[in-house]
Design a protein around this nucleic acid. Structure first.
Lengths: 186, 186, 186, 186
DNA sequence: CATGAATGAGACTTCATTCAT
DNA sequence: AATGAATGAAGTCTCATTCAT
């Protein structure tokens, strides 16, 4: 039985498992079993579990970048764009049963020797931070104030994601969104 | 060689290890070795690794409650109290090399079957949330607005902790503190 | 809280557990927990798990000797006495959910170093053998033939017990009883 | 150092150990050490100790089926065939130092959750029972009587095996054989 | 490119027993 | 006589990885 695209099947399978249960809670055996691949085939495509994790984070990042790019190029006002982005967060939290941010979750169990993973997390977070800064720059004339408020949204967004996960509740998302929209009403 | 007080040595040792590397990344073997105990001594006091984790979270919670109680009973204004609390966070992040919130970190790798752990996390988070709500209630006359702002501080506080950990940087803490203090200046 | 008769409580508790699950499948911890005794109290009364097993086997033996003595001293004919004894076996197998002979079950997991246990088993089995020989001697005039048939009943009785256990069925008991009663009809 | 055929070495080694000391008295560690395998190699081939036990029982069953098939297809009379079969039992008991029936011994320590093991035991016993019934059917014209006597031989055979083990003596085998041969002389 | 078998190290847990009070 | 804490050894099973084909 020919099984092409082993590489992609592994990535997809691992992605789902890593996402749902956490990087450290999923073993190679389960991944290859559910992907229908042999053990050695796995190591032909990914030199280590860690590298698979990097590939997963990178793939997710690319997808999320697309979403942010779409939002940025839309005709909406900055406040509307932010409302949309927090709307996506709400949908995501509901659909994922409050699994939270995969990057933060992975970072919680990655020691400092996993440079590649750490770097993926860092760059993803900086990318989101930059997204918020871009939006505030469009609305607030003072550049320094715009940067500060962009970072503030970033912190609110992260806190909302994390505590919605911890408490299995949506209210942190609502609180954060309200705080953000208030910024634009003053 | 017989050493007394295995229970305490285990809790202390495990606490340090869980904190620094994460619950799922630390094994019983390492704990008992560093605590200088026999494996069976461990299981005499803690029926499972999970129960040890609960004991650890509970001990930390009790200590952190003491801190919040101290702050609450001080003579400072609510804004000053919050400044002090975020000052503690900054000190903590620096001293711990940005390890972040142990509760959130543990929650990221605990599946839903670990009811005890999940409950510890939830109650700790609610305790902090209540702390912030208590402080905003002292300053904002409108009760609903006070609750909303208390929750907002909670989200900011959590986001600051999480992103300082992810980015190994202090700026999220500063951003959050500034946002909080701004609330009290309007 | 005074807890007298720890020795007896241990013996009784262990007896039930050994009986239901087998000597090797029951640990000291479970015994003392269910008996409500401390670990060291156990070892004050029984120098080892093995010795507890011996005490258990001995106690059961004494009870079963009483039953056989009662049957022997009754007014029944030898055939009727045997019918009664196999009737007891049937009741016992039904009540115990086909747990089989505790002595044989224990012997299956006792190596040759457990001299005390081995000896208990041997003497119990010889006691039953002698019981059957006594009954056949009452009916069969030829002493050698009587001994042979007594031993034959012994083998039938043991096979019935063992296979009723293995197959969770009563028919081996019925087969053995029929075979025995046939002996007395010829 | 990499050694092939771990699967077979494990089965063979475990078979000897299970046989001599009993399933519950032999650990995985001892098996893999004596088989010269790594622990993970064991679990690659057998998902659990229980499944290894099943494989062992199955292998023994296949061998014993061969023996019974040989006897059945021989030119001997039913009585001679039974004499041969009990002769094999005698040889086996002598060679094994009276270890008894591995199936019964295993059943004595397997709780009801070990469905696979229980089923192996049951089917093995039924197979022997059928063997005896086949032989009696050849000699006794009345079918019901033939079945009853086949089962009676089964019970005698089992009792002989079990009590020879318990008493470390050959006489139960001799008694059972004599009883069987008597059936065919009447 | 793909594979099944093999691996050392370590995971969590329980065993029967003994010590010090 | 009774106890709670401590123990070394062993229990079953899984980890990420590599070998030989």
């Amino acid at each position: 039985m020919r099984k092409p695209n082993a590489r992609e099947r592994i990535l997809e399978t691992a992605g789902e498992l890593f996402f749902q249960r956490g990087y450290s809670e999923v073993g190679i055996n389960e991944i290859i079993e559910k992907a229908g691949t042999a053990k050695a085939s796995f190591y032909q495509h990914y030199p280590s579990k860690e590298s698979l994790c990097e590939a997963w984070l990178k793939a997710m990042h690319d997808r999320s970048e697309t979403l942010r790019a779409e939002i940025l190029t839309s005709e909406d006002s900055p406040a509307e764009k932010l409302a949309r982005y927090f709307g996506h967060l709400e949908t995501y939290m509901a659909n994922s049963q409050f699994r939270g941010c995969p990057y933060s979750n992975t970072g919680a169990v990655s020691d400092e020797q996993c440079c590649g993973i750490i770097e993926q997390i860092r760059s993803h977070k900086e990318s989101i931070r930059q997204f918020f800064r871009t939006l505030t720059a469009l609305h607030f004339p003072n550049p320094e104030r715009a940067e500060e408020l962009g970072d503030r949204i970033f912190v609110l967004y992260s806190g909302a994601t994390g505590e919605a996960q911890n408490l299995k509740a949506m209210w942190p998302v609502h609180i954060a969104r309200a705080a953000v929209l208030e910024m634009f009403q003053a």
